[in-house]
Design a protein around this nucleic acid. Structure first.
Lengths: 215, 215
DNA sequence: ACCTGAACACCGTTCAAGT
DNA sequence: ACCTGAACACCGTTCAAGT
């Protein structure tokens, strides 16, 4: 059957299959996806432009698959909610992360999501010249914490005597509890610091306005 | 020439070749390394246990290749110096990062480095139950900013009108300058927040001691 | 002890052939 | 328009053969 009466493939089907395999911790390359869909690898090339195109499809579908209802009243609620969702997302797809970071994207849902965040931060009063950097900081955190959550329990296995590390490894929380503690510390640290930064910016702005009125 | 009079391979040579290829942005797999060393892929298996072993060798050599003189007087100087060095390290080996994160290690130089950090933080007065999480936060940070530094200039390419993102992309710094601004914001945010956290911990400790004396 | 050569089971990608 | 089958240039890994 060289050609079915109705197409059995589509970019959506391919992207979804890739995500399903990734979520299951299995390989999600061209061959693996084709096998999973009961089709030959070369068939995929009628719908997508190779592995890069598949990754881009997965990235876009990943965003719509995590339809967090983001609170728009306060920037800090927005950021915290977003970070929590992204952390889960990255943790569920750890092997996809390296393919996502550091690659250019122009897919509309992704651009829209970042445009939303940029707008919220600008409205909140963060200096425009810093906003892209703040977004990069948030991205770095989400990725880092997602990977931390996905990491195995025993990242370090000391063979010899240690001064501190071995003791801490024995006495500390493990697994999900440790990862969650890490995330809570990280997120409170981050939000506190950004709040301080915003307050300082506003104060400077107010001083500048007052000085202008004085003259 | 099936066997040379003196060995032409060793774990050190193999690890170093892998790092050199990675730093050059070239593939650094078993085949690529063998080609680079003028040897057959199967030869490597006399010295290392496959690709995983090579990655572990690269990890260990990466640490000794960045012999930062870490200031031990103040925990914050130590952390800042370490983060700067690690960021450069990750930025120079972006494709190695996904192979390093989330994998167990027991190689002594790596363990030693983390034991050092843990000891400094414990001595500084951070609560023992939080130190592993703080280290994870620092790791997440270094990785995130290293990848940010290695990322292409145009991560987003909006095709349609945006509310804020497009404007910021046009007006903001680019390339190295933008990445450095991101890092400086991130690092000041992080250190400030940890300082506050440490101060709060010490205050609580002092109150507890005072209360104990009262009784 | 250490490098080779052949073999195996994988990749991603191209393209003419079939309907 | 869309799936196939064969082909290509890659992977990582094993193992008997050679010195």
């Amino acid at each position: 059957m060289p050609r079915p009466s109705s197409p059995i493939l589509s970019p959506e089907i391919i992207g979804e299959a890739g995500l399903a395999l990734s979520r299951a911790g299995e390989p999600f390359g061209v061959n693996a996806i084709a096998r999973h869909l009961g089709v030959r690898p070369s068939s995929l090339y009628n719908h997508v432009g190779g592995m890069d195109g598949i990754v881009e499809l997965m990235r876009a579908r990943l965003l719509v698959a995590y339809p967090v209802e983001l609170p728009r009243e306060r920037w800090d609620d927005y950021v915290v909610t977003m970070l929590r969702a992204q952390r889960e997302m990255y943790a569920e797809h750890p092997r996809l992360v390296p393919l996502l970071v550091g690659t250019t994207t122009s897919s509309p849902p992704v651009i829209d999501a970042y445009d939303d965040l940029a707008t919220i931060l600008a409205t909140a009063g963060f200096p425009e010249g810093e906003i892209l950097s703040i977004i990069a900081v948030l991205d770095a955190f989400a990725i880092g914490f997602g990977l931390d959550l996905a990491a195995p329990d025993d990242i370090w296995q000391p063979q010899e005597e240690t001064r501190t590390l071995g003791r801490l490894l024995e006495s500390s929380e493990r697994g999900r509890a440790r990862a969650d503690l890490t995330f809570e510390i990280g997120i409170s640290v981050l939000i506190d610091a950004f709040r301080m930064r915003l307050a300082a910016t506003k104060k400077k702005g107010a001083q500048a306005s007052a000085a202008a009125v004085d003259r």
